[in-house]
Design a protein around this nucleic acid. Structure first.
Length: 953
RNA sequence: GCGGACGUGGCGGAACUGGCAGACGCGCCAGGUUUAGGUCCUGGUGCCCGAAAGGGCAUGGGGGUUCGAUUCCCCCCGUCCGCACCA
């Protein structure tokens, strides 16, 4: 770029912005400008250049979902949320709040381990390098974070407390009566004093230490369970369900995943299902996120019903009983067959030696015996991927040979296995009511089973009755063919049936959730070691808090191995042979313990980081109680929580649900004062960008594409435009560093905030950034002479009109900033500045001063520079945000539109406080209106005070 | 299939609890500064008819409520997101 010789010395361009930005970033750092004082404990020091009374001001706790420190650095899409929270935080600092805002790193996780496997670089080394790079990029944005509070989940000082929380959970049980977690010691006391019976009824003292440990283990909120897990040999690890795609492959790397039984750490999140559901009502979150959480929890009310199978015996020799869950107990009279999931444990007992009399051809799967049919069917099912099962909704299944007895009418009904019944939901078995269930109807048709309607379909229902196709009727209506229920509406029939079942002992009302307990263990290296020791009998015991943290052993050969399909799960920590055993006295004499070899999932560190932001230094407590109560707003447990939490919608369910769960346990145990961690949540939108493909279908560098009359061109070739996520793969990434170089950080901030509302996706357009730079240039030029660098601000009073514009702007900007509506704030500031540009003279100080204050949350560096040039010697960061004078918001005279039949035809100027009669008279007297009415009869006149007049002629 | 969000100029987007649709910006057009281009400055810019005055049409489509609808209600179309044989 050739330098124009006459370019003004002090034009606000990228070079000047760079000078200003780096200068003030250094100054803020030196002064600790963003140091937020705690009310007690550590970090009670505030900024040296801020007000002394900060800690006694009302608090505001603002958070971003902290990032994983990726090796590829940032693009302009990443900081969108961070800028939003920064602007809001700065605005709130100027309205008298003590604002806590910082940033950390969610730094454990598989990518560093994968990278390490490829390069041999230790995950810690790689992670720290990535954090350093990302911190540099973020710091250049001028985010007002209290860097004393920055944490990384990989810090030993941090994960010590992650492990401590694990121990809290492990050493707690859920008291169903009180619906809350209590220390396990209280359970032990109940066993000891006989309040609660031991599992086998013997006195507690008669149990051996090992038996006692085993008994307590059954109750713990974190427990070991032998459960089928998703073993992924390609990654050498077990994956959580959410990390497995619908195709049955790993989310990361797309390796095949196999179901294997394994001893796993589980967290009893299901105990909290009701509270996690109910307390959503306390939260200021969007309906869509709340709905997603509700769906994920999937609470449904219904009944358990027991069906006896007289011909079959269960494992204990008892007559087998199949328990089903149903949300429609009212339809029990219509249950004409039963279905078990193929994996159901009772299936083996139900399979008969030979096909009984009456077995239809369709039922036997072409096999000679039920055992053969079941085995073959199970095999076929296990071969099917989840995707197959989804796409092919044709009902399949086979008869087990057994008949169950319907408890309400003693009818004998056949028992099938079919893969449309899932082991993972309810009891893994259903009573099939084809008359009232689509799926059961399809199965019944395919297998020639009886269909009995037990609800009278409504008149408009198009089923067989009304000459239509066969169909289940799901709607409301009176019960029919249902004995004592006949005539009752669905809801009434449901409760009547539940009452009947409970009286006869055939079942009971119950609640089921889709939510499963949380599989918490990972067979990896780069995570928090689970602080558990196993005694000689294999009972798990927590490492004493005084021995925390359990540090990761240093491994040379630490990487997960890629294993073959038949492999057994193998945790990498098992290779640190010296580390795996430890001698310790846990109060029962010195024992030799084996360490748990699993690490925690990545969710763990992010479950509670808000607490450590509050108090990152305390050694003896997870967070200082006074500071915790202050920052979380714990005076009112219902209303408390982080005041604003901003992050991506991809964390709508898991992170937020896990975090809420941990928080509730900590609340029950008295470590935190609020019921919920995050009071208000906003999902910021994503920045997307255009991408371009050539005719071979290969992406070309988007930055080098030019727009032509009829399309787009790259290197002389026409290319096709697409739209999608910004990133390397689409070759459309724009980095913050590019923007700093071309425009400066303030312009980038301003542009990102101007693009649209915070929660909306939006397309990035580098060519539009210039608009934001122009605004800053014009503001600068209105205050500073570009050639001399002198201030062009006068002490003369502003005109009355300007005064009014100023105060209207202040009023609007205050409201909009408070509503996080930064795009409209910027629009109003632009309008004010356009007025200043038109002035054709120096800017009155009484406008310049509030203008600089108003822009400072958005563009802190240039605002601080102008603030200083205006003669201030304290930082604008803690200056008061301007307040509008209400008297200047109302005009003496206003112009209002006059409509004829709803269409604006003229305008009249009237006194602002004119009454309706005056308005009507003025409107009717208006020349243009008279002309248009032309003597027509006026039927009605609607006057909206201060708004408009509408004449109906 | 079920659930949620949304649909406004060439583009990003404004419009409070129903009251002047299109604020602000990008782009585009015209003019100024400049040797020229760019930068920068000033003005214009929803669409259609019209020289203008003015008029007509416009918030995905259709209907409704209302003096008045981007806003409220019903139906349809489309886009995005979540869940998915959940008993």
């Amino acid at each position: 770029m050739s330098e124009a010789t006459e370019k003004p010395r002090e034009r606000y361009d990228a070079a000047l912005a760079d000078d200003i930005e780096t200068k003030w970033q250094a100054a803020w750092k030196a002064a600790g400008t963003y140091h937020t004082p705690n009310p007690a404990g550590s970090l009670t020091e505030g900024p040296t250049d801020g007000p002394a009374d900060l800690a006694s001001r009302p608090k505001l706790f603002i958070m971003d979902m902290f990032p994983y420190p990726s090796g590829s650095g940032l693009h302009v899409g990443h900081p969108l949320g961070y800028i939003s929270t920064d602007v809001y935080a700065r605005f709130k600092r100027m309205t008298g709040h003590n604002v806590l805002h910082t940033m950390g790193y969610d730094a454990f996780g598989l990518p560093a381990e994968e990278h390490a496997r490829q390069t041999g670089v230790h995950p810690r080394e790689n992670t720290e390098a990535n954090i350093a790079n990302m911190s540099r990029q973020l710091a250049r944005l001028g985010l007002g974070h209290d860097d004393r509070r920055a944490i990384a989940t990989t810090d030993e000082a941090y994960y010590r407390w992650t492990q401590w929380i694990f121990n809290q959970i492990f050493n707690a049980w859920f008291d169903e009566d009180q619906q809350k977690a209590r220390p396990i010691s209280e359970l032990e006391a109940e066993f000891a004093d006989g309040t609660r019976a031991t599992p086998d009824g013997r006195p507690w003292a008669d149990l051996s230490t090992s038996e006692q440990r085993a008994a307590l283990h059954e109750y713990r909120l974190a427990y070991v369970s032998e459960a089928p897990v998703n073993w992924c040999p390609g990654l050498g690890t077990v994956l959580a369900n959410e990390e497995v795609t619908a195709e049955g492959r790993s989310d990361r790397g797309n390796f095949p995943v196999f179901r294997r039984p394994l001893k796993q750490w589980m967290m009893r999140i299901t105990a909290y299902a009701d509270r996690l559901l109910d307390d959503l009502d306390l939260l200021d979150w969007t309906d869509s996120i709340k709905t997603m959480q509700r769906n994920w929890i999937g609470r449904s009310e219904g009944a358990h019903v027991d069906f006896r199978v007289p011909t079959a015996a269960d494992a204990t020799g008892e007559v087998a009983t199949i328990q089903v869950f149903t949300t429609r107990p009212d339809t029990l009279f219509g249950a004409t067959y039963m279905v078990l999931a193929p994996e159901h444990e009772l299936v083996d007992h139900l399979v008969t030696d030979a096909w009984p009399e009456g077995t239809k051809d369709a039922w036997n799967g072409g096999a000679a015996t039920p055992a053969d049919a079941v085995a073959a069917y199970r095999h076929t099912t296990s071969q099917k991927s989840d995707l197959d099962r989804q796409e092919n909704k044709t009902k399949t299944g086979v008869f087990t040979g057994s008949y169950a007895v319907n408890p309400v009418n003693d009818e004998s009904i056949p028992v099938f296995i079919a893969d449309y019944v899932l082991m993972g939901y309810g009891t893994g078995a259903i009573m099939a009511v084809p008359g009232q269930d689509e799926r059961d109807w399809e199965f019944a048709e395919a297998f020639g089973l009886d269909i009995i309607r037990t609800v009278q379909p409504s008149a408009d229902f198009v089923g067989v009755e009304n000459g239509g196709e066969g169909k289940a009727y799901i709607g409301d209506g009176p019960a029919i063919n249902s004995g004592f229920l006949d005539g009752m509406e669905v809801a009434e029939a449901k409760s009547a049936m539940i009452e009947h079942l409970e009286e006869t002992g055939a079942g009971e009302g119950t609640v089921t959730t889709k939510l499963r307990d949380w599989l918490f263990a990972r067979q990896r290296y780069w995570g928090e070691p689970i602080p558990i020791l196993f005694d000689a009998d294999g009972n798990p015991l927590s490492v004493p808090d005084s021995e925390l943290p359990v540090n990761l052993p240093e491994l040379i050969d630490w990487a997960p191995r890629t294993l073959d399909e038949d492999s057994e799960p193998e945790p990498p920590l098992g290779r640190a042979t010296e580390w795996t055993t430890v001698e310790l006295d846990l109060g029962d004499g010195t024992e030799t313990f084996k360490r748990d070899l699993n690490v925690m999932p990545q969710w763990a560190g992010s479950c509670w980081y808000y607490l450590r932001y509050i108090d990152p230094e305390s050694d003896d407590v997870v967070a200082d109680p006074t500071s915790e109560k202050y920052w979380m707003g714990g005076e009112d447990a219902d209303a408390g929580g982080v005041d604003l939490y901003v992050g991506g919608v991809e964390h709508a369910v898991l992170h937020l649900l896990y975090s809420r769960f941990w928080h509730k346990v900590l609340y029950d145990l008295g470590h935190v004062t609020t019921k919920e961690p995050f009071k208000r949540l906003i999902n910021q939108g994503y920045i997307q960008a255009y991408a371009f493909k050539d005719d071979r279908g290969i992406y070309v560098e988007a930055a080098d594409v030019t727009e032509t009359a009829d399309g787009y061109e790259f290197d002389g070739q026409s290319v096709a435009r697409e739209y999608g996520k910004m990133g390397k793969s689409l070759k459309n990434a724009v980095t913050p560093d590019d923007m700093y170089e071309q425009y400066g950080a303030d312009t980038l901030r301003l542009y990102e905030m101007f693009m649209g509302p915070i929660d909306q996706d939006r397309p990035w357009e580098t060519k539009s950034v210039v608009g934001s730079q122009r605004l800053l240039q014009r503001i600068w030029r209105n205050l500073v002479d570009e050639d001399s660098g002198e201030l062009t601000v006068s002490d003369d009073a502003a005109s009355d009109a300007l005064h009014r514009v100023l105060h209207r702007t202040i009023d609007a900007v205050r409201t909009d900033m408070d509503a996080l509506s930064f795009n409209t704030s910027i629009a109003r500031i632009t309008e004010l500045n356009n007025e200043l540009t038109k002035l054709d003279g120096p800017t009155p100080r009484e406008v310049a001063d509030p203008l600089v204050r108003m822009i400072s949350p958005l563009v802190p560096h240039v605002a601080e520079e102008l603030w200083q040039r205006l003669g201030n010697d304290t930082s604008v960061v803690y200056a008061d945000f301007p307040t509008a004078d209400p008297a200047l918001l109302v005009d003496d005279e206003i112009e209002i539109p006059v409509q004829i039949k709803g269409k604006v035809r003229s305008r009249i100027t009237v006194a602002a406080d004119a009454d309706d009669a005056t308005l009507e008279a003025a409107a009717l007297a208006d020349e243009r209106i008279q002309e248009l009415l032309d003597g027509a009869e006026i039927r009605k006149v609607i006057v909206v005070s201060g708004r408009l007049v509408n004449i109906i002629a």
